[in-house]
């Protein structure tokens, strides 16, 4: 369940506007990579390209050396919002991506669903409807749904940005637990520097639009990590500086530039 990702000189335009400019990045199987960069630089666009939601690009996108031609079960995508189907209970939401949803789920499937529900700590709430959920619970269900199809790559677009700080830390732990178990390759977009450093093997700093890779930072601290690890704090200071540079460049280029949202 862990795939490699190769992004080779990918260029993406929207109506002639350049968003990604010859962006290249390789991700090893089982690696966790964070993408950070100014708001509007094209992080979500890159994830949408990888998931096959967005097409028409130049360059090459390979998952396990296979070109991305459209959405595939090999790639899961988790959005900023949970996007659960409000008419389905949690269990049915979690197995939403599986094909044999028509009542007669095989015992093996329903056992796997139970495992996922336990993993995201929602087994007690399996028959609840999404409207009865807090933001954190909903995002946990969404995580289980993305993983239930057993993708080799999980893409996460600011998945925890809408929950409070404590819930966010819990969700980060959960994500690491899931990763330990599945070894799924993860690409995570976040505006939270601490999150990126705590979770990932590498942090990729993107330049402002048109985006390319500005810097790649390896996080060597062993897991389980301490959030106050001096190594992480040092990298954090470095990232702040790097982002400041991006910011400065941006405001020099465009007096009314896109505000930098951290």
């Amino acid at each position: 369940m862990s795939s490699s990702i190769k992004i080779e000189r990918v260029t993406k335009r929207f109506d002639g506007n350049l968003v990604l400019n010859e962006l290249s990045l390789d991700v090893r199987p089982s690696e966790i990579v964070s993408l950070i960069g100014p708001s509007g630089c094209g992080k979500s666009t890159l994830l949408r390209l990888l998931s096959g939601l967005e097409r028409d690009y130049d360059g090459r996108l390979l998952i396990d050396d296979q070109p991305v031609t459209g959405p595939s079960r090999a790639v899961g995508l988790m959005f900023q919002e949970p996007r659960l189907m409000p008419w389905l209970n949690v269990r049915d939401n979690v197995r939403f991506g599986l094909r044999q949803e028509n009542g007669a789920a095989s015992p093996a499937t329903s056992e796997r669903m139970d495992t996922w529900l336990r993993q995201v700590k929602l087994d007690h709430a399996a028959s609840h409807l999404p409207r009865q959920f807090s933001g954190g619970m909903a995002q946990r269900a969404a995580l289980a749904r993305s993983l239930a199809t057993e993708p080799g790559v999980l893409l996460l677009d600011e998945p925890f940005s809408a929950v409070d700080a404590l819930t966010r830390m819990r969700l980060q732990e959960l994500l690491l637990e899931v990763w330990q178990r599945t070894q799924v390759t993860m690409v995570l977009v976040t505006h939270d520097l601490d999150e990126s450093l705590y979770l990932s093997d590498r942090v990729v700093v993107m330049s402002s639009r048109p985006a390319s890779v500005r810097e790649v930072l390896a996080v060597k601290a062993p897991r389980p990590r301490d959030r106050r690890d001096p190594e992480l704090l040092r990298l954090r200071a470095h990232l702040l500086e790097a982002l400041d540079v991006v910011h400065a460049l941006e405001s020099a280029d465009l007096p009314n530039g896109i505000p930098f949202g951290v």
Binding site: G70, P71, F79, F96
Partner: peptide, 11 residues
Amino acid sequence: RKLVEVGYVFG
């Protein structure tokens, strides 16, 4: 549209 997109992601 956001829910429809979930369906796209699952192919």
